[in-house]
């Protein structure tokens, strides 16, 4: 069952230099109980896409077009009471870097019970009981709900953030760079936790990361974003077995492979384009080793290369 369907999403920011098209025509779907990975370089619009779904954009940002269909509601259009009833209760988010944004002078447990008390008609006692269950669920000792954030390590704080996102039993959780600031062993623990929660609670997840290998291990499907657009989309195994877009290929090659030979991985030279004056043709053309004349002229459409495998490049063939 499709839980979330995003179609032609465009999210822009008003800036002094002009309109910045952070997300510029993005399509994807998330199935119930499935995890979708959103990968791409810093600044390509991953966080903006997530905030659009949650309708939590900063003041200068706005949804300029497209549909965000969540269980029959177009999130791009809902407002007021309706929006409040969906946000946090049906969809929630673990913000990028949020584990460092916990209120330092407030007990951790109280910070989690807050959204419960706000969104549900329950008393303190029920909320506290729920917080204890949530602690248990994310692998923290329920005895520690009265601790302060500084008494927790980075990995434990990230568990708290996940518990907070799960507080109102949502159907979809968006996790923005959930392991980026953590070291490898803690990263493995958090990913294992997310995977087991997904199974146990039949959660749908959107996991955002610039680290493709992290996503490959945790997500059923993958979207590769570049400069505000999705350039490739397929299930994870297919993306790695059979990458089509030159950018995807470049990203995969940029990973050191500890199981392979000891060779320096390739890098993708250059920087992403300015999103205020986006290039007319393919946005990747400036950095693409395959670019031909047509790439500067015409924007490549996202076409289905194989069943459920999409790529946006002039030189991939529809299968």
């Amino acid at each position: 069952m499709t839980l979330l369907e995003v179609k032609g999403l465009r999210t822009y920011f008003k800036t002094q230099e002009g309109t910045l098209k952070a997300v510029d025509g993005v399509d994807f779907e998330v199935e119930k109980g499935h995890a979708m990975g959103l990968a791409g370089e810093s600044g390509c619009g991953k966080t903006t896409a997530a905030l659009s779904i949650m309708k939590l954009l900063p003041a200068n940002g706005y949804i300029a077009g497209g549909k965000i269909n969540f269980m029959g509601q177009d999130m791009a259009r809902v407002t007021g009471e309706k929006l409040r009833s969906i946000r946090w209760r049906d969809i929630s988010i673990v913000f990028q870097g949020a584990m460092n944004a916990l209120n330092p002078v407030k007990r951790v447990g109280d910070q989690i019970s807050e959204p419960i008390l706000l969104h549900e008609d329950v008393d303190d006692e029920v909320a506290t009981k729920r917080v204890k269950e949530l602690f248990e669920l994310v692998g923290l000792s329920p005895n520690r709900i009265r601790d302060y954030p500084h008494e927790f390590s980075g990995g434990m704080r990230q568990r708290v953030m996940i518990a907070m996102a799960l507080a109102c039993k949502p159907k979809l959780v968006i996790a923005d760079e959930p392991t980026t600031a953590l070291d490898v062993m803690i990263q493995a623990q958090i990913l294992q936790l997310m995977k087991s929660l997904q199974k146990e609670l039949e959660l749908a997840m959107i996991i955002i990361s610039h680290d493709l290998s992290v996503l490959a291990e945790t997500c059923e499907t993958l979207c590769i974003m570049y400069a505000g657009k999705i350039v490739e989309r397929a299930d994870s195994v297919e993306v790695f077995r059979n990458p089509q877009h030159p950018y995807t290929k470049g990203l995969i090659e940029a990973f050191p492979n500890i199981k392979g030979d000891k060779t320096m991985p390739a890098s993708i030279a250059g920087n992403p384009p300015n999103l205020i004056i986006a290039p007319k043709g393919c946005r990747f053309a400036e950095r693409c080793y395959m670019a031909k004349e047509i790439c500067d002229e015409k924007e490549p459409p996202l076409i289905e290369v194989r069943p459920n495998h999409y790529a946006a490049c002039h030189f991939v063939k529809a299968g």
């Binding site: 490898v184 062993m185 493995a188 493709l212 290998s213 490959a216 291990e217 195994v237 995969i252 990973f255």
Partner: peptide
């Protein structure tokens, strides 16, 4: 243990 938790992209 450290080697085993390095994420590997290829299934």
């Amino acid at each position: 243990a450290l080697i085993s938790v390095v994420p590997t992209p290829d299934p």
